[in-house]
Design a binder for these strands. Structure first.
Lengths: 412, 412
DNA sequence: GGGTAATAGTTCAGTCGTACAACTAATGCG
DNA sequence: CGCATTAGTTGTACGACTGAACTATTACCC
């Protein structure tokens, strides 16, 4: 286990480390980097000083280091129409340091590279069928793909800061162990080694967790909230909790298993052995069946049928309706539990739910209003995911870059 | 709003503040204070240096400041049987700085004072019946009690660092507003002003949240886990989430409303308007009824009946049982949702559940094993709360002192 | 009993990072 | 063309930590 990143090794594992002089600079480097990265309009050195509260002299030295480390780039000085020396705008450096997102999912492999500006530098998605596949073969193939992409990126003068591998299953990011991925038929293995990516620091994570991070990428019309629950519906249903723009992982990163929250103990038996789990109402197969389609039909077929007003369209006015709607009320019920237990006010629906939201929203909101105890005092929002397809790839690459941003001192 | 505590006012609310020279000292002061406070055996200056990684010289100056601020006390030097100059053991200063816990609950008012060693310095609990009471009268009475206690404490040379007021309801610690406390019949008020405690910084919090913090107090035989869910059963059922020894509050502190998680949508109607909430199975009234007792009977009556093997005792061997057991299976179901959504592995049962645990445990654990997706990979623990009666008073006082410990620089 | 080793705690010069003030650079405006 | 204005740099001062040397106090051994 030779991770390159932070070196927090206080031999006997005590809590936080002692702060020395250079801790100050590390902290302030991060502060300056965030100021440059997380602002819509580019700031000058003076602007950063004003935003952070640091002295201009201090900011100058820090910015110079970030520029030297190729995290930040100076744009040509621009006179703002005011008097005074023109400011030098500072922006995240494009195509210098990049993050690598990797993913194995049931129906595709993917590699995506993002640079510090959030732009996609490279993108390779290979469709396939990986249900009950051989992990060594599939991960080997993905690793090959990743090496190709990395070579191209390196040839263009960029540095790969690290990688995240998204997997649809129970994953422990700390140990790098995949416990089980039911839909792939994988269990108890360490995927990173099978990629064969050598020195590159790769960490694994749950697919829904990384997809949630993609929501924070910004660039969309609606600003992403700082805290939200991201629910990704597909064959299974996963969720991620984001608090203050950071994943909340619980003890092992195995939270958000909303697919197996009880909706009705008298309901159908679930693959997990219990009865009436959400997945039996709002999983893809269940929704298809409810709309009279074969369980493995493509999502587009369901959307088309709903758009045509076929069975599954809510007859407006009724308190409840039929068709795809069992999913809506069931989702609402499970989400109400979620909100009651966690106190989040924004729910982002991803995966299949993104396209189905028009036919789910009314029921979800009605059930939430009914069942959430704090509903009278909170503005509960249900919205569609903004990130594009294979969001976990984007989120994974983004997380790598966030780690860089959180510790720029490691790169100077 | 003139809080004395931290002065984190970066005019325009940006994220973290700039680190200056004195930030270093603040950080290390905290580090040293925690080293002294959170260790079973007293450390010397040299011991603190070893534990924190700071230089001995640095530790000396920091410890001297903490001693001068009366946060830390030096014990007489003790020769440890080894060669060398005897070490001066450092301990939390007893009876110098103290925290004040306040509480209004349905059947009592309380004031409790803890010092930095965790010892109870003063304790006043006044029984009463505050269902549908007048907040001004009740809080005035509590304020009076608090002033008496504070006067006594001050006369003994102690300084009250602050106070926490525990309330059974939806509370926003940030704004100091109580939205609603159903069992008191209070709503939309600012309780702190009605206490009339003048300059003393008082913050409000939910009762279950503070009770959970009392679990961290230590001193018990079993070490408290760093992360757990605390469930407090009484008339209503509340919960708190503790992660890494700190409360996880969600956006507003309104999480943990486990009492209104769906157990069975076909179940009885709840006071919240929904059907089949946990409270209808595992609330005190429901448990009493299930055991054939009047809903407002004392808890002791239920325990006695169960101990006698009356109705409500599980007939061992059966997958399920009758009597008090609907509570067990229902609790298990709601807790399974909790664990699936949050990934916590330890569940601490407080309030009425503490005494009832022997008759609940089997069912809870069985349902958890069935319904928690990660159960095969996690050692789920269900345990009884360790803190004594009126745990919220202890937890509130403790939180005040934790805030001192988190920023000792404010007291030097 | 005295010397030596060992450990605790203090003193002091050295280093590093930030703050503040003075300075230079570059622009708009009258 | 000079002045006001803003951006960025330079240099001194200060504060906090470090490391090494020093003092203080004990145990152990001869």
């Amino acid at each position: 286990m030779t991770t390159a990143g932070t070196a927090h090794d206080t031999s006997t594992r005590t809590g936080p480390a002692a702060a020395r002089q250079h801790s100050l600079r590390e902290h302030n480097l991060e502060l300056v980097a965030r100021a440059v990265f997380e602002v819509p309009e580019p700031l000058s050195r003076a602007g950063v000083a004003a935003a952070t509260g640091l002295a201009r002299a201090t900011v100058s030295t820090l910015v110079d280091q970030l520029v030297a480390a190729r995290l930040v780039r100076e744009l040509p000085a621009v006179t703002g129409g005011r008097a005074g020396r023109p400011a030098v705008p500072l922006v995240p450096a494009p195509r210098s340091l990049v993050g690598l997102g990797l993913e194995v999912n049931v129906d595709y492999l993917g590699v995506r590279v993002l640079d510090l500006t959030g732009e996609v530098v490279a993108d390779r998605v290979v469709p396939g069928a990986f249900h009950d596949s051989d992990p060594a073969v599939v991960l080997g193939r993905l690793g090959e793909l990743a090496r190709e992409v990395c070579d191209g990126v390196a040839a263009a003068g960029m540095t790969v800061a690290g990688a995240r591998l998204a997997l649809p299953g129970l994953v422990d990011p700390r140990t790098g162990l995949l416990e089980v991925a039911p839909n792939l038929g994988w269990s108890s293995l360490e995927p990173v080694g099978l990629l064969g990516l050598g020195e590159l620091p790769v960490r694994i994570a749950n697919e829904a967790k990384l997809a949630a991070l993609a929501e924070l990428a910004g660039g969309s019309d609606v600003a992403a909230p700082d805290s939200f629950v991201f629910v990704s519906g597909d064959v299974g249903i996963g969720a991620a909790i984001v608090v203050d723009r950071a994943l909340f992982l619980g003890e092992r990163g195995w939270n958000g298993e909303i697919g197996h929250v009880v909706v009705d103990p008298a309901g159908p038996r679930c693959s997990c052995g219990a009865f009436g789990c959400l997945e039996q109402y709002a999983g893809k197969a269940a929704m298809m069946r409810a709309a009279g389609l074969p369980p493995d039909a493509p999502l587009a077929a369901l959307v088309e049928r709903l758009a045509d007003g076929g069975p599954g369209v809510p007859d407006s006015g009724g308190a409840s309706a039929d068709g795809a709607l069992p999913a809506g009320r069931a989702l609402g019920s499970a989400l109400a539990d979620f909100v009651n237990l966690l106190d989040v006010s924004t729910i982002v629906l991803g995966g299949a739910y993104t396209d189905l939201l028009p036919w789910l929203r009314a029921d979800i909101e009605a059930v939430l209003a009914d069942r959430v105890l704090a509903a009278p005092f909170v503005d509960l929002q249900v919205r569609a995911a903004q990130a594009g397809p294979q969001a976990a790839l984007t989120g994974g690459a983004r997380e790598v870059l966030q780690a860089v941003l959180a510790d720029p001192a490691a790169w100077v």
